[in-house]
Amino acid sequence: MIRVLFVCLGNICRSPMAEAVFRHLVKKEGLQDKIEVDSAGLGSWHVGNPPHRGTCDILDQHNISYDGLVARQFQTEDLHQFDYIVAMDNDNIAGINRLKRENPRAQVAKLMDFVKEARESEVPDPYYTGNFDYVYSLVTEGCQALLEHIKADKGIE
């Protein structure tokens, strides 16, 4: 099983959106028996909460399920339990890197690193901008590119 973890600051906007979108893409391609998806936040403020209303609204508009998504905090163990840890911005990468102790199992990268000629290098936080539509477009583009990367990297047809 290939394990993918999306990470943002609070785990109520960007990373659960990416988790839901990526799960949707994985299911669409019939790869749910090969790829497992989760999300987490670096902070603990929202632990136990569902995704932000703006995230739910945009996912509803695109008929993407977010059933069962509940915020959790990123743990050091995640670096050893996941194959890919995908952060939304440079601050998230810095936070993850502060928790690294020995060589982690996971590849750590930003979501937009997987997009060739990406229009943004980071996924902005809609908690502050309110622009859930734009974030959804970046997350979708990034998730599609990440899935193609994983399929090529792991030899999945």
Rank of each mutant, 00 (worst) to 15 (best):
R105S: 05
I96A: 00
K34W: 08
S44M: 12
L31E: 05
D133Q: 15
G68N: 10
K27F: 06
R72V: 05
G95Q: 07
Q144M: 15
A20K: 01
G95C: 04
G142C: 03
H46V: 06
G10A: 11
G54E: 01
I2A: 05
A109P: 06
G95V: 00
I64K: 02
E29V: 08
C8K: 04
N49F: 10
G41K: 02
Q81H: 15
M17E: 01
A94D: 12
G142K: 00
S39I: 04
L69G: 04
M1P: 00
R105V: 10
M88V: 08
Y127N: 05
G155T: 10
A145H: 11
A40M: 05
V4I: 09
T129Y: 08
F114V: 15
D113F: 08
D83W: 11
I150G: 03
Y66R: 07
H62E: 12
N97A: 13
Y136C: 01
D125T: 09
M112Y: 02
P104N: 06
I96G: 02
T140K: 12
L138I: 04
H80E: 12
G30L: 04
V86K: 02
P124I: 03
S15P: 01
K151L: 12
R72P: 06
A18G: 08
K151R: 14
I64R: 04
C56T: 00
E157G: 14
N103R: 13
C56I: 08
K34V: 10
N63H: 15
K154I: 08
I58S: 04
H24S: 15
E157V: 14
L147M: 11
Q144A: 11
A109G: 07
V86N: 01
L99G: 01
D57S: 14
S15H: 07
M112V: 03
G68W: 10
G142S: 05
I12M: 06
G41T: 09
